[in-house]
Nucleic acid binder design. Structure first.
Lengths: 364, 364
DNA sequence: TGCAAAATAGTAAACGCTTACTATGGAAGT
DNA sequence: ACTTCCATAGTAAGCGTTTACTATTTTGCA
């Protein structure tokens, strides 16, 4: 079907044929400069000329070569975003915000996934650096490995030197002298509020399940959890915290294991909603009712939370907004650096949303 | 914090400083050609020289400019993917497959969202054309508007002429003479199988809810639905099919409306799992039990299906595989065009997965 | 009626890399 | 010891745009 009647020539090399601006210029009978100007519209071109150019463009199906443009011009009109996994709702919603805002600001969006591998993350930042994106947005918690931090800091500096910017979305600063922008949310505060709510419902022995170890997000949530306990004068039992991972699978399997022991608890604080879904299944399979027998809460408030039965009480995090703010902040014209530093940090709020997975502790 | 002690110079122009290959060459005391070769490794370079180059690269934090490389070389090592919405699991899982396979084949992934706007979709294809991506993957069902089809066909040809390729993932062909590749799944067959299953359970009056009108996916699913009915000699009642949209919101609101009428049905076939979730909520609010009072099935088998209660019986579609296959197919070396056309179409299978949302119809 | 100032259009120099060609030096062959 | 070859390295010509400059018309006004 792709055959025309030309006698099959020798196997063509992968010819990147492509209509160029020169073709358009020739076809319209003007110079390439004029074509460029007629298209970008940043320089006066006579109406008649512009029209001829547009006709030629349409006739030839010309579209500019973004790479040539990026090379000659100053900006690539592209932002890069690095997330763990495209299909994980936590990241997907942030990515949606990024994509929407980028698109609203006329930018394309280069997306890459680390699959939780921090070495890969470093490599991806370099890949994005090669692309000369206007910004690179790093999403989600980070490892607290010092070597890794140093390497990332180096990249932040390189990006800055290139006129780009590294924005940390939902992840802690790389240090006071590292040129980055940050949009964060109150992880510790959300965990505090949720824990306090559980306590107010009479719970004292609260199991904390999930979140990778040595990970900023886990650390912050756990800190809020512990602070709330301390604030109410409740002794902290290390046997009740079970770090591990953020997935549904981890929630399920770890809860199964715990259920096989005789650990005593009346509520479970899952490190995020996915973990909560796994925990819920384990509880369900054990014949334990939520919230009658055990209360359960999550974190993030992804749509899934509202589909679970019982509907999950959780901490709402404005994921999409975070994505939007990240690109807004990244693209904010920090050119007029009026000494008074334009704010390089945005913090969005979290709040708990009460649904049906928590019940007051009945006196036993 | 980004302040250093240098007396604030006059407002620097947005200088895209950047270490270039020339800097590396100078620093290593070799020519740029040698640096290029040492890095790409496609031409012999003395070990000692290569080492000096690598030192210089590391010392300067050099990364190649992908745009210059794309301009000079032949490929951009980038694939583009156009989806409806980054956060919709149907698309997110396909996107995950695309991202993973692209990354496995050393490609970057440019992702864009249409928000269901077909004009925007056309514009996005052009944007990707500007980027000279090695392939552009169009995901999900398509409008059957002829004008739109023609425009898309033009773009497919342009892409083909540029040495790129348009791949249709889960969407019908643009016509016999349009150069595209396709990875599809058996929409009609899945719907047929599911409907037949419902019938085998005794259901005769099955409500079909969801799916945009004049949309390829809707048409195919509905076709399978009707064919199954016909095969069993069941009269088709037009009052039972309610097209509209693919979202949870549509499923919920339309089901509410239907429940307010006296329409008679014993099972609901939701156009996809999201719609099913909405339908389920409406049913639940009405005090109807699933599957005791009404059976419910969905389509796609996104993870949500397994979180609903009852767990949703649905049609499994290997979304991630489809994404993977799309890039595999797109990047397959169709250079050795041995007359015998290498296959430009892949079709993945679907199958129904039985869970708990369907019950045999009890004789009333 | 002239002449300066707009308004337009053209020329050509980057932008940072890849790669065909060309050059150089020593190893190998006789 | 003198060619003939390799193995390396360098030169320079693009790749398709943008944009400072420069050149040519027009237009506006005295």
């Amino acid at each position: 079907m792709k055959q025309n009647n030309v006698p099959a020539a020798s196997p063509l090399p992968p010819q990147r044929s492509g209509v160029t601006i020169t073709d358009v210029a020739t076809s319209a009978g003007v110079s390439v400069a004029t074509v460029s100007r007629a298209l970008s519209g940043n320089y006066p071109v006579a109406a008649a000329t512009r029209e001829r150019v547009q006709h030629a463009v349409a006739a030839l199906g010309y579209v500019a070569n973004a790479h040539a443009r990026a090379l000659a011009g100053a900006t690539t009109r592209t932002v890069g975003i690095i997330i763990n996994d495209v299909a994980d709702p936590f990241f997907a919603y942030i990515a949606r915000g990024v994509e929407r805002q980028a698109s609203a600001e006329g930018r394309l969006c280069l997306i890459m996934a680390t699959h939780g591998d921090k070495e890969r993350e470093l490599a991806l930042v370099d890949l994005l650096r090669e692309q000369r994106t206007d910004a690179v947005i790093l999403v989600g918690g980070a490892s607290d490995d010092p070597r890794y931090r140093k390497q990332m800091a180096d990249r932040a500096r390189a990006l800055d030197a290139d006129g780009s910017v590294l924005v940390l979305c939902g992840r802690p600063s790389l240090g006071p002298n590292v040129p980055t922008k940050t949009v964060g949310y109150d992880n510790e505060g959300g965990a505090f509020a949720m824990t306090d709510y559980l306590i107010s419902q009479g719970h004292r022995r609260i199991l904390y399940v999930g979140g990778p170890q040595n990970f900023s997000t886990t650390a912050a949530r756990l800190a809020g959890f512990r602070r709330a306990l301390a604030a109410r004068g409740i002794e902290h039992d290390p046997a009740l915290v079970h770090e591990g991972a953020f997935g549904r699978g981890f929630g399920y399997s770890r809860m199964k294991e715990i259920l096989a022991t005789s650990l005593d608890f009346t509520a479970v604080f899952a490190a995020n909603d996915m973990v909560a879904a796994g925990v819920l299944q384990a509880l369900e399979e054990q014949g334990l009712r939520v919230p009658e027998d055990v209360s359960l809460v999550g974190y993030d408030d992804v749509p899934l939370a509202n589909e679970l039965r019982p509907r999950l009480t959780t901490v709402h995090v404005p994921l999409e907004d975070m994505g939007r703010e990240s690109v807004r902040l990244a693209l904010a014209d920090s050119a007029h650096d009026t000494g008074a530093s334009s704010d390089n940090t945005i913090t969005v709020g979290t709040h708990i949303v009460l649904r049906n997975s928590v019940a007051p502790l009945a006196p036993r």
